[in-house]
Amino acid sequence: MMDPRDLLTAAVGLIVTTLAVALFPTLPGCALPEREVYVQEPVPVPPRPDVPTVAAGELECLSDDAYRALAERDAVLEAHIARLERLIRTTHEDVD
């Protein structure tokens, strides 16, 4: 037969363990903090501007260096516009 003090010690230990397990999730700092979730709204792709066309004859008066600089400038602007459009499209769900 068990000593009554051992029985009491075991009962108190069981009660303390049960309370600790029941109260553990409610202790401050033990629960995960709430996270804010940001949702990216699709950004509309603006239409490309209508740029004036220049006939080849109108460029004859330019030097070769000026013509190359103008052509390079147009190519750089086109590449930049394409890069910005791709960036904007990443905000859309069905990115191609």
Rank of each mutant, 00 (worst) to 15 (best):
R73F: 02
S63R: 02
A55P: 03
P52T: 00
T9N: 08
A20N: 00
D6F: 01
V45P: 01
G57S: 11
D65A: 11
H92T: 04
M1F: 02
L8Y: 08
D74H: 03
E41R: 06
L7G: 09
A66I: 00
T90Y: 09
M1Y: 05
V51Q: 12
E85Y: 10
L70W: 07
A71Q: 06
R86W: 09
A79R: 14
A22C: 14
A20V: 08
A31R: 15
E78K: 12
V45L: 14
E78M: 09
L23N: 03
L19V: 05
A69V: 01
R68D: 06
V16R: 15
T18M: 12
T9Y: 06
L77V: 09
V37G: 04
S63A: 07
R68W: 03
M1Q: 12
A71Y: 06
L7C: 07
D50R: 14
D3G: 05
R35Q: 13
P42N: 12
V54Q: 05
I88G: 02
E93G: 12
A31I: 06
L87A: 15
P49F: 07
T17W: 13
L27T: 08
D65F: 00
P28A: 15
L8T: 12
A69K: 05
Y38Q: 13
H80M: 00
L23D: 03
G29Q: 03
L27V: 04
E34Y: 01
M2A: 11
R48P: 02
L32D: 13
P42Q: 13
T26P: 01
E41I: 10
Y38E: 13
R35C: 08
P33A: 15
V51K: 11
G13P: 00
G13H: 04
V16F: 14
E85T: 12
V39I: 15
T17G: 08
A75S: 08
M1W: 03
A71H: 01
T26Y: 15
Q40S: 14
A55Q: 06
Q40D: 03
V51N: 13
A56H: 05
V95H: 10
T53I: 06
R48Q: 05
L59A: 11
L32C: 00
H80C: 04
H80A: 09
V43H: 09
F24I: 02
P25F: 04
A10C: 00
E72A: 15
